[in-house]
Simulated scan of single mutants.
Amino acid sequence: MKPEPPSSTDKAVERDIASHIFSTSAMMMGLCLTVISLMDVRSGTNRLATVVDDIIALDALFFLVSCFLSYGALRSRRVRRMHHVEAFADGVFLIGMAGMGVACVLFVWTIF
């Protein structure tokens, strides 16, 4: 039995996921910038705050890569390539989110 080719509805759903990754990763980059500037104002020269700044700066790079990859998935004409690029963008985005979770825990420790 031959597998059925993806319908236009399936392709639209996949593009919808890629567009969500694209917009959310761009927003998360802005959040990273905001948190870095907030850490500079609140902490002064606290050593743990510098580690948090470094983690968040690295997360911003992960979100930037995720943003570019999801844009590439949106622009892709081949469905198979779109799936691969989108899956990679999703993985990079999740790594960035995990880093933000670690940074949030460390950020709370710097406040107290």
Rank of each mutant, 00 (worst) to 15 (best):
D40T: 01
I111M: 11
K11W: 01
L38G: 08
M39R: 01
R75G: 01
A87E: 13
S76G: 07
R78K: 15
T110W: 06
V51C: 04
D53P: 03
L58A: 13
M100N: 00
M27P: 05
V35D: 03
F107C: 13
W109I: 15
R75A: 10
W109A: 15
L48N: 12
E4S: 10
M27Y: 06
L48E: 14
V41P: 01
M39T: 02
I111G: 04
D53E: 14
P3E: 09
E14M: 14
F68V: 15
V79S: 08
C32I: 00
V102R: 00
R80E: 15
D54M: 10
I21C: 03
R80L: 12
K2V: 13
F62E: 02
I95S: 07
A73I: 11
A103D: 03
S37E: 01
V85W: 10
H83S: 10
G72D: 12
I36G: 01
K11M: 05
C67S: 12
G30D: 10
C67Y: 05
A57N: 05
I56T: 07
E14I: 07
D10R: 11
V65T: 12
C67G: 12
L64T: 03
V108H: 11
L48C: 03
K2H: 09
C104M: 12
M1H: 08
D10Q: 13
V13N: 02
D16H: 13
T50E: 15
E86D: 12
G99M: 00
F63V: 08
V79L: 11
M29D: 05
L74W: 01
P5M: 05
K2Y: 03
E14N: 09
S66V: 02
G91Q: 04
S66Y: 09
S19R: 14
L31E: 08
I21L: 08
I17Q: 02
G72L: 11
L38Q: 06
F93V: 05
C104Q: 07
F68A: 09
F107R: 08
V92T: 09
A57M: 06
G91L: 15
S19E: 14
K2M: 11
R80M: 06
A60S: 14
G96H: 00
S37Q: 02
A60D: 07
C67P: 05
C67N: 15
K11R: 11
V35P: 04
S19K: 13
W109Y: 14
L74A: 08
F112Y: 09
M82E: 10
T110K: 07
D59Q: 09
A60C: 15
N46I: 02
M97Y: 04
G101T: 06
F68H: 03
R81G: 09
D10N: 12
